[in-house]
Design a protein around this nucleic acid. Structure first.
Lengths: 184, 184
DNA sequence: CTCTTTGTGTACCACATGGTACATTACGAC
DNA sequence: GTCGTAATGTACCATGTGGTACACAAAGAG
């Protein structure tokens, strides 16, 4: 039944995701995507049935990748919140993470602009981080607090390129929280 | 020297900014902009000399508007940080502020995507808020911390539409900070 | 009045986008 | 080998964009 070498759709998808990451946004034309995937617009539409599906499947793949990267198992259970958050900050702001970070923020923008899919992505990521941080922080409210600071720090970091203010802010929030807690 | 009724460029600009705010983004076509301003693409290009200038001047006008809205003089000097931040949060997340908020975030996105102008806008806003908060918070590091939490809270609010988590996070940061400080 | 200058509409251009029609190619089944 | 079906390229389309050429209108200067 097999004609020709029938390209591997999975590989195409990987390359599309790579193109999105490289561009730091989903705003990559089918032509560029095709070239980047060693194929053509024509074939991408043929195999995926339209741009929407490419985006959908690329997002799904990104979700999977992030899920395994931030799995709670990846962090020692005895670690302090400070250690974990610091490691997360380092990893998140590392140069090689920039593309993914930009892509995630692009999805955030789509979410606040009304995209249902992007909103789902955001909620999933939120859930993931909550689950992770709940293992190192005392209660839900603290996790919420730290998470929002982290997000604000990411935003500032992306614009200024300076990792330090964000790190300082996160460390401070944790320190204060800890001090208050230890006093009680 | 004056021919015809020569339209007021200032009014046109105001209406363009209104269109941007209404759309919550600078991504409004010249055609839409023209219609919204009671004019036409033709005339907008004629008077402003191109899209870039319209955006530039609209941003400048937005900056002015925000500058007077968040002038330190607008807040009682004796107020507590909690009061001020709570008021700022209310004002920022009020339904009628949504358009401006979205537009500001659109500019943030442009900033992290590389736009020089948008980056300048971001830095100016940052400066403004720093200046304002320095009047109610003890030191620069605390202001930085609160500011980043605030930004993260705004992001989450825009996506979820829920004002409460953000408010909780901001209140917590301030409370902890205050407790730690009072203990020292 | 006429003449010049400027405001304005219409129709257009060039370009990029997502997507498709149609022809052609290549390969496996037989 | 032949044949049919799937893979692919090319050329195209419709739409939306920023911007412009050109013609015309209107109003002040003289």
């Amino acid at each position: 039944m097999r004609r020709r070498k029938k390209p591997d759709v999975g590989v195409l998808l990987d390359r599309c995701l790579a193109a999105f990451v490289e561009a730091g946004t989903l705003d990559v034309s089918l032509d560029q995507l095709g070239r980047r995937a060693g194929s053509s617009k024509r074939m991408l539409v043929h195999y995926f049935g339209g741009r929407e599906n490419i985006e959908e499947q690329a997002i799904r793949r990104l979700e999977n990748r992030l899920r395994e990267q931030f799995a709670p198992e990846a962090f020692p259970p005895g670690a302090t919140a400070q250690t974990v958050m610091s490691a997360l900050w380092d990893r998140t702001t590392a140069p090689q993470s920039r593309g993914v970070l930009l892509l995630v923020m692009d999805l955030s923008k789509r979410a606040w602009s009304g995209s249902k899919r992007a909103k789902r992505f955001y909620e999933e990521q939120q859930r993931l981080w909550m689950e992770l941080l709940m293992r190192f922080l005392p209660d839900r409210a603290t996790v919420e607090e730290v998470l929002q600071t982290f997000q604000g720090a990411v935003l500032a970091f992306l614009i200024t390129g300076d990792r330090e203010p964000g790190r300082r802010a996160i460390v401070r929030v944790l320190k204060n929280q800890e001090k208050v807690r230890s006093r009680a």
